[in-house]
Structures are given as C-alpha cells and as structure tokens.
Design a protein around this nucleic acid. Structure first.
Length: 649
RNA sequence: GCCGACGUAGCUCAGCUGGUAGAGCACUUCACUCGUAAUGAAGGGGUCCGGGGUUCGAGUCCCCGCGUCGGCUCCA
C-alpha cells in the first residue's frame, strides 16, 4: 500500500498495516505521540488496519496533540466516554445516551436512576472516578458487532437509548446497503456505541474539568424524556486548561449583565421579568443607536412611521399571528374586544399601507419604525438583554414591485454593511432557501431566491447557502457576526415576503392602470437595540466608542476654587451638543480619576490653577492616560468632530 | 415551558452541625482643598425573595410560589 504524506513524500507499507504501523514507519517519536490517523480526510483509530488504496495513493497524516482542533475533539470525546464510565461506577443503573465533543469541550446526557439527582457538588467524586480510569491507562478497543448482537447486548444491559440509536441507524441506512454492523468502543469496564475514533488509551487525557449540569431533552425534542447533561472540557496540558478557564473568566467579566448595572446603563427587576429598566446612561446609548438608524435611514429614502401598540384580534387573524404566534403574545380584553400587544411591526405596517391608495410611482415605500414590541417568551429562555420580553427593533418593511426586489435587497445589504462598518463589525452572510413547509408556487420561489442571490452577486459578496432554512413565506439573507470572544451572533436579516401583502390584500396601481400586489421585504440590521447593546458591550468589553459613551467627557476640578471654571468648560461642551459631566465632589483628583476610569469615561479633563489661567484643559484619555494640555476650545472642537464622525477608537 | 443550582444592606459577599444578622465598597455628616486609579473619622441602612410548615426557637430544616443563573426547546 502506498500513501501520500503531508510533506509530499510517499510511504509504502505492507498490506494490512495499521495507523500505528504507519506512524512507526515514519518515526519512533511520532509513534509515541500519535493519537489517530487521518486518511483522505477520514479520522481513524491507530489500531485499525488502513483502508486498501484504490488507484492513486491516499493522503495520510498522523494526528498528534499538535494537530489542533481535530486532536482536541478526539481527546474530548475520549473524556466523554471516561465520564460515562465514571457515572456508571458511581450510579449503577444509569441509562446513557449520547456524549459528543463540542466547540469548547464535551458533554454526556444521562438518565439517572429514579431518585438520583446530580449537581456540581458531585463533581469532585466524579472527577476522582474519571481520574481512576485515566490513570489505569485503559485502552480504547474497537469492536464491530452485527446489528442484532449489538441490539441484544444493549437490551440486556438495560440501555434503551442505545437500542433506539441503533434502530434509527438501521432505519436511516440506504436500502441498497443495509447496515450490517455497528462499532462499539470499550475502555476498562465500559462499553459504548460509538462511531469513533478514539485515542489509543485514556491516559492521553492530560487535563480535564467538569463544568456544569443542565437538563436536555432526549433528541432535542421537548415532548420526550428530560435527561441530565454533564458538561466538561479537556486539554492536553494543565496550562491549556487553565488558559481556557481564564478566557471564561474574562468573558464573565465582560458579561453585559455585569457591565450594564456596573456602568449605570440598565438594570432588571422582578417586577417586570425580561424587560430592562434603562438608566440615564443606557438611555443615552440606546438613543444614540436609534439616532444612527434614523439618520442613515433618511439618507437612504426611509420614512419613519408610528403605529399603535395594541391591535384588535382581527388584525392578528389577518396577519396569521392569531393562529401561528398566539402563544407568544400578550392578550388583553375590554368591552368585549380581544386585543393583543404587538410582537412584531409588520402587521401594523401592512395595515398602514392599506389605509391609503398607492401608485407604482410611490414605490418602493420604505417604512421604518423603532417600535416597542412585547413577546411572551417562556421564562427559562430569558437572558439579560439578549433575550427579553420587551424590546425595540430597528425594523423596516419595504413595499416594492417585483422588478424592484433585487435592487432593494442590494440596497439593504449595502445599508447593513455601512452600519456594521461603524462598529468595526465583520459579518458572514447566509442565504436561506425554501423550506419543506411553505406557501407559494415553485416558480415564485425560483424567482425570489434568484433575486436574493443576484443581489448578493451584484455586490460581489460571499455567502453560504442554508438549504431549506427560509421562512415559510419567503427566502432570507441573515447576517452573523463573531464577537471578540469568538462567539457568533445573528444581527441583521433581510426577508422576502409574498404572503403578508396577499393576506392584507395590499395593492398598488401600475403604469397599466391595473391593480398589482406589492412585494414586502422585512429587514432589521442591528436586530433589536436591546440585544445589539448587549452584544456591543461584550464585544467592546464595556469600552464604548466616544459617540456611544453615555458620558463623553467629565471635568475634574482639582480643588473647589476651580469649580466655576470647570462648570464653564462643561457647559460649553454641552452647548456644543456633547455629553459632558462635572465631578464637583470634594474629593482628591486621584479619587475622581479613579471613579471616572471605572465608569470608562473616554475623556477626563483635569482643571486646576494652570488650566484656569491659560483657558486650557489637561486631557486624560481612557484608556491611554495623560494626553497633555490643550486649549479648552480646541478640545471641544476635537471631541465634537470625533463624536460626529463616530470614530471607533 | 422543562431539568438542575442559587436568592442575606444599593453592590460584592461572610454567617459551622437551628439560639435573636456582619464585612468591604456605595450612601449621609464632619474635617481635609488635594495635579493623573481609593484622605480620614463618625453615622444611617436589612420583611435574610414571598407564603406556608416543623420546632421552645428558622437566614439556617421541609413544602409551594416568584425571580436569577447554567443548559434544553424556542428566538431579535
């Protein structure tokens, strides 16, 4: 057998050689370090015979600790098996389900025996049991078993989830090539149904930690058994593990739920779960974002409207929300009328459109409303500002003709990029196409999907396609960002809708003097202002750019005799449209500086005798420190310019 | 909504196996008038999330509810 190594050389091996043989043939050191082997992209156990090449020499790569994500995923999967083994040691009779490696670790889902609950106080004992399996240097032994035998074995062991998994594998197999065997992996006393591969032995898990327990539905189905999921992570060294834990710690420090109250931006209260109380500082941030939407929207031909907060149920019947979304709406009744608080702006905008006649000359009509929405989200889903019951979207509905769709979508994308650029955010685009459950003809879907793809092409944008993930009424383009901690967030969306205009009977008079149905485009760029602020806070670690900072500058007089001059400096800044404050407390300058630094006020203006005499301010930047003295007037112009241009840093 | 954990002063937290609530910061007052990350002293402040129960006695134990957190489902 001949294989192609990563360095381009060829490796010849006798027939029946294993991955371990291949590693040994390359070098003794590599043989010791080897965890698995990758043949033509497929990851395999070292102990398995290499596949017989057909035709050209397949590529072969030995996976070691230094192989990055592949190797980490492998060892984490190993750790999941070890966790399951430890759980069975400590809690015999536990039913095991699945335990994969995930992004930053692994988990395993268990159904513990009746009456047994496991929580993080059980981690030390579990970790101890895991360490025993690791120190025992248990080999991972693969076994390919006929389906019937495997089923019998797991039935006998009282492992119904494994039985169900095998039955599903059989069912999912191609009828022409029915599933004959399944693979099992055994380490020490523990055997699990598993596709593999695994490292040679448990000893390769050098550092691990159990992190949390959580509930999870079997197969992600809310109607099925709730299992207990144990999360953990594993690395090849203690140092890597500690580094990872530090990253988590940093993420915790940058958590918007901590930063918000700390910086005086917002707070939550039991009296309205899932709804923020916006403090003065947070309200400034919020308003700055709304102002940005408004300003940019005006430049791009959007018109602002205001629609009611509460509508009669008849509107929700027309829109379809009464059938499809009723569980998520706040409903109220008076004088025998059933009313509901709006969870979305689109029905109101459709109704507003329908109130007056429209000519093709009026289109596209781009309605914008930073409307207040309420959604009855289940209590368990609330999460700071990222998932709330009361929020406002930077929401627009564009009514246009079929011919205008592509250009309008291109305009939306251009608008989106212009917006994200201001925050220094890069986005990935996803085009979601027709789902199984949908309305409208295939011809219509062909056209609308093409319109979106053409708009993306027109701007030369890269995107991935999400087959079948579109809304039931139309395809969409979603915009995702990755934050400074590597987490992904959906921000904007641009959805084509042929359904809502139909339901509302919307029309415009065409050049042919006949009635035509407009197409509607739903679009949001920041998503909701609440969520966007949450994301921004975490992304910037609380260090908001000057144009967004609640207090842009704070004047710090050195002694009380400088108060008049200081107040004058502040007043001129405010008159120039800036957000300036004065720290008039009788405190040391060091103290005033410290407090302003903790609030992350971008500019601190220290004024004492020297500054008052010269008409200057001594500028201290956050972060950055002392930036020297400048005439107060010059600083004012500089700050105004920085805020106006929305400079990022 | 479901599973698990948690809920003590405005904030961060201490309070062992049940015996009448404590610290730091913040706040108020007084003194200090200060040059680039905490001046000092004194003082005020708590239905120990809410409601039941066990007990001579509950912040502490049990039950129910609410909220928060970690997830699942869902989602801007």
């Amino acid at each position: 057998m001949e294989f192609q190594l990563p360095d381009g050389t060829r490796l010849a091996l006798p027939g029946g050689s294993t991955g371990a043989d291949a590693a040994a043939a390359i070098g003794a050191g590599l043989a010791r370090a080897a965890l698995a082997v990758r043949v033509d992209g497929e990851l395999r156990d070292l102990s398995r015979p290499l596949p017989e090449p057909e035709g050209r020499a397949p590529t072969l790569e030995i996976v070691t600790e230094r192989s990055g994500e592949d190797a980490l995923a492998l060892v984490r999967h190993d750790a999941a098996h070890v966790l399951a083994a430890a759980v069975l040691d400590l809690y015999p009779g536990t039913k095991i389900s699945i335990g994969p490696a995930i992004e930053a670790g692994f988990y395993y889902d268990f159904e513990f025996p009746a009456g047994v609950t496991v929580n993080d106080s059980d981690f030390p004992a579990l970790e101890e049991a895991m360490r025993a399996h690791i120190q025992a240097d248990e080999r991972f032994v693969r076994e390919d078993l006929p389906v019937a035998e495997a089923l019998e074995r797991f039935r006998a062991e009282g492992q119904p989830y494994k039985v169900e998994l095998i039955e599903d594998l059989v069912r999912a197999a191609d009828p022409d090539h029915p599933l004959e065997t399944v693979s099992l992996y055994t380490n020490g006393p523990f055997t699990d149904l598993c596709r593999g591969p695994h490292a040679p032995s448990t000893r390769r898990i050098k550092a691990f930690k159990l992190q949390s327990v959580a509930g999870s539905y079997w197969r992600g189905d809310a109607r099925r058994q709730m299992l207990t999921r144990v999360y953990g992570t594993a690395f090849f060294s203690k140092g890597d593990l500690e580094e990872h834990l530090e990253l988590l710690e940093r993420a915790r420090a940058n958590d918007h739920r901590r930063l918000g109250p700390q910086l005086g931006l917002f707070q939550f209260s039991e009296v309205s779960p899932g709804a923020a109380f916006w403090l003065p500082g947070g309200t400034e941030v919020f308003n700055s974002l709304v102002a940005l939407s408004r300003e940019m929207g005006r430049e791009r031909g959007y018109v602002e409207v205001k629609t009611p907060q509460i509508f009669d149920s008849s509107l929700w019947r027309t829109s379809g929300h009464w059938d499809k979304y009723a569980d998520n709406m706040f409903v109220t009744e008076y004088e025998d009328r059933r009313m509901a608080v709006k969870p979305m702006n689109c029905p109101g905008h459709c109704h507003l459109y329908s109130l007056r006649p429209h000519s093709y000359r009026d289109l596209p009509l781009r309605l914008w409303e930073p409307g207040l929405l309420h959604r009855r989200e289940p209590s368990g889903t609330l999460h700071g500002l990222l998932r709330v019951r009361h929020f406002a979207q930077d929401d627009s509905h564009i009514f246009c003709t079929e011919d205008q769709v592509q250009q309008e979508v291109a305009n939306v994308l251009d608008f989106a990029f212009a917006t994200y650029r201001i925050f220094g955010i890069d986005v990935r685009l996803e085009l979601s196409t027709r789902p199984e459950q949908r309305i409208g003809s295939d011809e219509l879907w062909d056209r609308s999907e093409r319109a979106l793809a053409d708009a993306l092409g027109q701007l030369g944008l890269e995107y991935t396609v999400n087959e079948g993930d579109g809304a039931f009424y139309g395809p969409k383009i979603d915009m995702h960002m990755t934050d400074s901690l590597g987490r992904s967030w959906q921000l904007g969306t641009c959805q084509l809708d042929y359904n809502m205009p139909e339901r509302f009977g919307l029309a415009y008079t065409g050049a042919d003097n006949a009635e035509h149905r407009p197409v509607m485009i739903h679009r949001a760029l920041m998503g909701s202002y609440e969520r966007f602020i949450g994301i921004l806070l975490e992304h910037f670690g609380g260090e908001l750019p000057v144009w967004l900072a609640p207090a842009q500058a704070i004047v710090l007089p050195i002694a009380d005799r400088h108060l008049d001059y200081a107040a004058g400096v502040r007043d001129r800044l405010i008159a120039a449209g800036l957000r300036a404050e004065l720290d008039d407390r009788t405190e040391s300058v060091a103290r005033k500086i410290r407090d302003a630094e903790l609030r992350r006020v971008p500019y601190m203006l220290i004024v004492g005798d020297r500054e008052a005499d010269a008409g200057e301010v001594s500028v201290r930047r956050h972060p950055g420190g002392d930036a020297g003295s400048v005439p107060a007037r010059e600083f004012e112009l500089r700050l105004a310019e920085e805020a106006r241009r929305r400079v990022l840093r």
